[in-house]
Structure formats: structure tokens, C-alpha cells
């Protein structure tokens, strides 16, 4: 079976520090894949390379058979890779609805001229974006907050809004960077269900970074473990849980 996303020898160096070292990922279409590891293991750096934010020092990234290296975030987004951020990056002064709508901007069927003269194409585009945004806000349970400014949302809702915005780009692969961080256990359980539904109902492949082990082990089909930039394990939740190197890495990190 061929992978939707595949990396070969992906490496990122910052000066003398090798944050990600020779990372091979293979994520299948429709999979719910976990990427875990102790703090500073290089997980976010992998996301940054996958989404075109960083150009890898070495190695290749291919998505649906296309080479993503050096494309930059805008073109990668247009090819169908979207993400959320570990440190939330919403457009605070826009409303919740408008935040979700910005995700749909890249597929706009209207030109600046249309918007300045309010042509039919402008109105159709607004309606299209609003429809997508409302549908996703409803999916994430945020529809009754649509008119509020994003900055007024409580923390857990901010994380969900980031997911809605990312989904509005209509991605094939959604990368979630610690979506449960800062949530209470009730919110986490709800989030687990949502992530499953994103894969099952919206048919989006999910790559999940998460520190909450119960969440990751509970919903991912396969998990890859990084430590100091290197892959130390890959397998099903059960296999990974029993892996000696993984236990050591985590115990070492906590000791």
C-alpha cells in the first residue's frame, strides 16, 4: 500500500543542533497516525518541515506523489496539507466565523475586482465560505460563538477553532500539534471523539502530536516515537507501549 505522505531521511539542523535526524515517515491514506516523544524531541519541527514552514536540511517529503521540498507553506497548503499550532495562532481580531472562513480563502472563485464591485461572484464566494465555515463550526460545537471575536474564546475553544480553520482549507492530511494541551479531561474525551470523526466522517487523514498518552494510545492506529530527533519506535499502540526504548526515553525524561 502506498503512503499519502512519505518522508525519507528528513533532517533539520539548527546550527550545531540536529533537531530531527533521518526521520522516515509513511502515513497511509485514511490513517490516524500518532507522533510522540518527550519535550524537545523534534515533533513540531517535523510538522514545520511537512507544511513548508521550514525547508529540511536534508531528505525529502512527498505528498500524494508530489515532492513538497522548498514549496513553502502557501503551496503546500494548496496541495492539501493543513495544520494547527502548538502555540495557538488565531486571527484574534477576526470573529470566530471569519477565522474559519479564512481557511476557505485559498479556493476563492472571485477576484478583488468582484469584491470591490460586489458582483454575483463575490456574493457566491461569501456564501460558499460562510457555508463551509458554519458547517465546520457546527461540527466542532462552536456554531453559537460564530459572531464573537476569536480572542474572547476560552482556551479549549480556541484549540477547536484552529481545527475548524484548518479543516476549512479542505485538506487531505490534517496535522494536529498537541490539540489537547490545556484541556480538562472532559474536553479531552470530547476531542478524542472529534478527531475520530474527522477521519471517519470527513475522510481526512490525521497526523497527531500529543503528550496525553491516554488520548494517543486510545485513538491512533500506529504511532511513531521520536527522541532527540531520532525515531526510536514505530508500531501499534500496544507495541509502542511495551517497547523498552520508549519506556526508557519517557522514564528518562521524567527522572
Amino acid at each position: 500500500m502506498t503512503s499519502l505522505l512519505e518522508t525519507r531521511g528528513l533532517t533539520m539542523r539548527f546550527g550545531g543542533l540536529t533537531a530531527v535526524d533521518d526521520c522516515n515517515l509513511g502515513i497511509r491514506e485514511g490513517e490516524l497516525f500518532g507522533l510522540i516523544g518527550p519535550n524537545g524531541a523534534g515533533k513540531t519541527t517535523v510538522f514545520n518541515m511537512l507544511t513548508g514552514v521550514y525547508t529540511p536540511s536534508q531528505g525529502s517529503v512527498s505528498f500524494a506523489g508530489r515532492d513538497l521540498r522548498g514549496l513553502g507553506p502557501v503551496r503546500v497548503a494548496r496541495l492539501g496539507v493543513s495544520r494547527t499550532f502548538q502555540n495557538i495562532r488565531l486571527f484574534d481580531e477576526l470573529s470566530v466565523l471569519e477565522n474559519a472562513m479564512t481557511g476557505a480563502h485559498q479556493h476563492a472563485h472571485c477576484r478583488l475586482f468582484d469584491s470591490l464591485l460586489r458582483t454575483g461572484r463575490h456574493h457566491r464566494e461569501e456564501a460558499r465560505q460562510r457555508e463551509i465555515a458554519y458547517r465546520l463550526l457546527a461540527f466542532l460545537g462552536l456554531e453559537d460563538r460564530a459572531g464573537l471575536p476569536a480572542r474572547s474564546l476560552p482556551y479549549g475553544h480556541r484549540r477547536k477553532l484552529e481545527i475548524a480553520r484548518a479543516l476549512a482549507t479542505q485538506p487531505r492530511l490534517l496535522c494536529l500539534d498537541e490539540p489537547a494541551a490545556g484541556m480538562n479531561s472532559g474536553e479531552k474525551a470530547e476531542l478524542a471523539g472529534l478527531i475520530r470523526r474527522i477521519r471517519d466522517e470527513l475522510k481526512v487523514t490525521v497526523l497527531l502530536i500529543e503528550h496525553d498518552m491516554r488520548l494517543v494510545l486510545g485513538i491512533c492506529e500506529r504511532i511513531q516515537v521520536l527522541d532527540y530527533g531520532k525515531t526510536i519506535a514505530l508500531g501499534t499502540p500496544r507495541e509502542v507501549q511495551q517497547d523498552r526504548k520508549v519506556i526508557e526515553a519517557y522514564l528518562g525524561a521524567e527522572a
Partner: peptide
């Protein structure tokens, strides 16, 4: 309009705007 929101998105968070496919 979608362009106004895109301009504000660039102002509010350029990186997030780009990751959403907005050409900053």
C-alpha cells in the same frame, strides 16, 4: 470581503495565514 479578511489575517498572524494558503 475574502480579501479584507486575508489582509487582516496577514496582519494578525502571517505564518498562520500562509499555512492557511493565503499568499501573504
Amino acid at each position: 470581503s475574502t480579501f479584507g479578511r486575508a489582509l487582516i489575517a496577514v496582519r494578525e498572524n502571517e505564518l498562520a495565514a500562509e499555512v492557511m494558503g493565503i499568499n501573504a
